[in-house]
Simulated assay, not measured.
Amino acid sequence: MEFLGGGDLEKFIRDSAPLDEVTLRCVTAEILCGLQHLHSLQIVHRDLKPENILLDNAGHVKIADFGLSAMFVTEKNRVKSCVGTLCYMAPEVYYQRPYYYPADYFSFGIIVYEMALGEHPFYTGQETEEQLVTSMYATEPYFLRHLNFYLQDLLLRLLRHDQEQRAHLVCNLRSHPFFKGIDWEEIEEGPSLVQSTLEPILKEPLQEIIEVDTFLSKDLEMPIDSLHQEYFKAFEYISERMKARQA
């Protein structure tokens, strides 16, 4: 498994939002690529939120935590379960109407808004569930007057309440003017190529943990027994001490 030393997007937003336009565009484009790949495999994430988007040491994003994901979901084969995190949940999910991939785009829109403005478009932390639902599903998000026009248009597409309208508005997002200058093929090739044209968002990346064993009791000879240790042979990341034992 790949070691991701940049933390999660929630912490990055808390520390750095509102993001400058260049950083916002790059991070948004990377999340979009990940989402579109999932949807091409007929997977709907259903719990997309900043805590479930991890960053590598340069700040490139990795969508994580698929515990609530639904598989084999298409426009004709929809699901109805109400799962996820309320303040990132699409209206069709909350009301348990048959839904498919556009539900993830509503969550995506809230994340982009948080990156752009440093706050949730509907939630302040003081609302009851009833007040939050009314705010999210019956009102439009507030935009500062100086906000980039193309960014506003992108957010209005993503945060459209009606699922079918949203599906139509997000069907060709890569050609949206907000993403002008983004090389989509380069992003899909991976971080090693992305870094040639996109500035890493983490200027001082976190140092990788060398000794995982230091988090465990020093009284233990082995973190887990040898039988269960076999399950982790294919993992790329193990401690230096464990490598020495295996040698």
Rank of each mutant, 00 (worst) to 15 (best):
I31C: 04
G7S: 04
I63L: 12
E185I: 05
M1W: 09
E164L: 12
T139L: 15
G181T: 01
K80P: 02
T139E: 13
E10I: 03
I209Y: 02
H37W: 08
D219A: 06
N57K: 15
S239V: 06
V79W: 15
S196W: 09
R245E: 12
L19M: 13
R14E: 14
C26W: 02
Q195S: 07
I110Y: 08
C33T: 15
E51P: 09
I187F: 09
E119K: 05
Y231D: 03
E240K: 14
H60A: 00
Y150F: 14
A64M: 08
L38P: 09
G67V: 07
L48N: 04
T85M: 07
G6K: 03
A70P: 10
R14A: 14
E186G: 00
R97P: 03
R166T: 01
L202W: 09
A234H: 09
T139K: 15
F143Y: 15
I201R: 14
Q207G: 02
Q163C: 04
L54W: 12
T214G: 01
L173K: 06
I201Q: 07
R160V: 00
P50H: 10
C87R: 13
E119V: 00
D47Q: 08
S196N: 12
L86A: 05
F232E: 03
H39N: 10
D225V: 02
V83K: 11
R14P: 03
E211W: 05
F12E: 00
Y237E: 11
L147K: 13
D8C: 02
L54P: 10
I43F: 10
N52H: 13
R241I: 07
G181H: 01
Y123F: 15
M89Q: 11
S175A: 08
L206E: 06
L35P: 12
L35W: 14
K80N: 12
F3H: 09
S135I: 03
E92V: 04
V79N: 15
H146E: 15
K233E: 09
L193T: 04
S69N: 13
D20W: 11
I201M: 15
I210H: 02
D15G: 03
L24A: 04
Y137L: 05
L156Y: 07
H39W: 10
T128S: 14
H120L: 00
H146T: 13
W184T: 00
E211D: 10
G125F: 03
E164T: 14
P102N: 00
L193F: 03
F108Y: 12
S81G: 08
F179V: 04
H161W: 03
D65K: 10
G118I: 01
A247S: 10
Q163L: 12
Q229V: 04
K203L: 05
E129N: 10
I13D: 01
I53Y: 01
R14D: 10
H60I: 00
I224K: 12
A247G: 07
A167K: 14
N57W: 08
F106Q: 00
E199S: 07
N77P: 06
H161P: 00
E92D: 08
Q131E: 15
A17M: 12
D8V: 01
R14C: 11
R166F: 02
N57P: 06
V79C: 12
E189A: 13
E140V: 15
G6S: 10
D56K: 09
V133D: 11
F106H: 05
P18Y: 09
R25H: 04
G190L: 14
L54D: 08
Y113I: 00
G59D: 06
